[in-house]
Design a protein around this nucleic acid. Sequence first.
DNA 1: AAGCTTTTTGGGAACGTTTCCAATAGAAAT
DNA 2: ATTTCTATTGGAAACGTTCCCAAAAAGCTT
Lengths: 340, 340
Amino acid sequence: MKKEPTTLRDIAINLGVSISTVSRALSGAPEVNDQTKEAVLKAAKKLNYEPNHVAQSLRSNKTKTIGIIVPNLISHFFSATISGIQNMAAEKGYNVMICQSNESFATEVSNVQMMMSHRVDGLLISLSKETETYDHLHPILNRGIPLVFFDRVCEELNTSRVMVDDHDGAFKATEHLIETGCRRIAHISGPEQLSISKNRRQGYLDALQKHNIPVREELILHSSFKEEDVAVHTHTLLDLPNPPDAIFAVNDLVAVQAMLVIKERGMKIPEDIAMVGFTNTPVSAFIEPSLTTVAQPAYQIGHISAKHILEQINHPQDFIPQSIVLKTELIVRNSSRRKA
Amino acid sequence: MKKEPTTLRDIAINLGVSISTVSRALSGAPEVNDQTKEAVLKAAKKLNYEPNHVAQSLRSNKTKTIGIIVPNLISHFFSATISGIQNMAAEKGYNVMICQSNESFATEVSNVQMMMSHRVDGLLISLSKETETYDHLHPILNRGIPLVFFDRVCEELNTSRVMVDDHDGAFKATEHLIETGCRRIAHISGPEQLSISKNRRQGYLDALQKHNIPVREELILHSSFKEEDVAVHTHTLLDLPNPPDAIFAVNDLVAVQAMLVIKERGMKIPEDIAMVGFTNTPVSAFIEPSLTTVAQPAYQIGHISAKHILEQINHPQDFIPQSIVLKTELIVRNSSRRKA
DNA sequence: AAGCTTTTTGGGAACGTTTCCAATAGAAAT
DNA sequence: ATTTCTATTGGAAACGTTCCCAAAAAGCTT
């Protein structure tokens, strides 16, 4: 029933040569005679030989695998990123092992441990929203395993990072709202410890400052990414004595949830209140009104992250940690189009 | 700089005991003395021991890894499925290795080979749209590696399958259109060889037949999933002398693309033409008008697929191939709401 | 024909585990 | 005191590779 896979030994016995010779023939070593090489290749095919990657990994101390840890797989941004990573990895002969932290720090810790046990050649990670300490990553660094953060990065550790210019994107978004005549611009931010929350918030603040618009603390709210949470915050904003005339949300998901509440309350977007999101999720183009947003090149982020970590894996000597910052693009749609 | 990971041998030397003892202590074997066990555990922690999963795999002939091959990672359906798989796998102590075929048969073949090389304990696959033969999967079956198809299944091989009742979903969708008064119902199908295309098409046909509506061949078009392709087909349908008053699309993506063309031509949905999709992608709820669709429990599909393959892995003796068919749910939204 | 280099091959260790089998020690039983 | 038993430990093989080193074979040179 269950047939044992063919090994080098099987081929060697079949041909009456040594295991070493078979190994050399299959790995394309130059010292092996052309005829024997041909015979080995033929026998390998006949016996359906498939190299045992596990044994190769043990022997070579390289797994040709890169680990990926993301908060979730389901949101479009992360799945697009992973798509970019996987395609680049495959191109270079690497495979990917994927874990979701489900936004839980504890799960992230055990994911990291698992990746270490698995002896991945490198680790790409986007932090969970709960992550505030980085001790769980020290073993990775101590062992010299290449580590690259993407999107939700860690600014304390001396590693490479791939991200977009969150500050600039948020700045452009906010400035755009100002230019369309909004003056009471609220910001629904994300979990405070996340780099993206901090940077986008700062971009928002700096845009206000540039245009001499005073910051009103009550217009800045931190949300977890949960739907109920966003709804509550939106109601809070709309219930203010002097409610906002625009909301800049930390991402499209939050923006969309807020829009639902606004529409439910019978208010018009953008006439009563303008909306801007972040990321350019597919939904943003289709929702009514279509959502102005800051586009992040998700696939590119993955592609570049993978490329970068592979370089670090294959040329560890000339590696210096760097922060790769990609450009965002403001996509103006109907949720912010109003006569200024 | 790069520190070598601690091995059992390191712990053994550190304590002056044998490797066997260390191994037994860490694996919780009963024969080991309580004091030595404790000492070993302490030393392991002190030296940051992390079991070498590669060595364990080689020795045990089990990788505790399940492979996943999907056409793409980026579409919501597949990422949701994978999320379900990964969470279930993690719960049972397994990890996942993921490949995208990018809808290419050649890539799928090499993905399968890679999975074999990696000695995955089981393989979950959703076929590429180009896949028409299954020779590349025979080695998997011959070696007795559990293989489970999901969503885009193979009906020729004697393996387990997890899918939704595509026929029933399509039937309900078509019947719904008929009930709202549509009589010239077109169907934009998918690649012909895909099981989902065949089954949804048949559901559509059977609903027409049940209601004595003659089938018009010119109203049934097969599309690749490419956007341009869908646009061309939609124009073709609308240009017919007797154009359709409804379109049932093989999935939401196709439906949304068709809607764009319809709106572009200045026609009203659902008044001029009603639309129904399949899958219940997030976009379908937000597009204007909101899209009536047949909901597939994507996460559940993944969860159940993983659960099933794990049972097959761990209890191969009492395994019998089965087809697990999940229910769909028709979600009526505005794209098909018209006074009948 | 003997010595030399070059080409090709084989043997065996090693990677880090697990596990079978044997060995030791002490305790219990006679 | 001798035997028998149990509890605990160590040694070594094995999983399938790769690669170092030595050995054999073949081709050159003198």
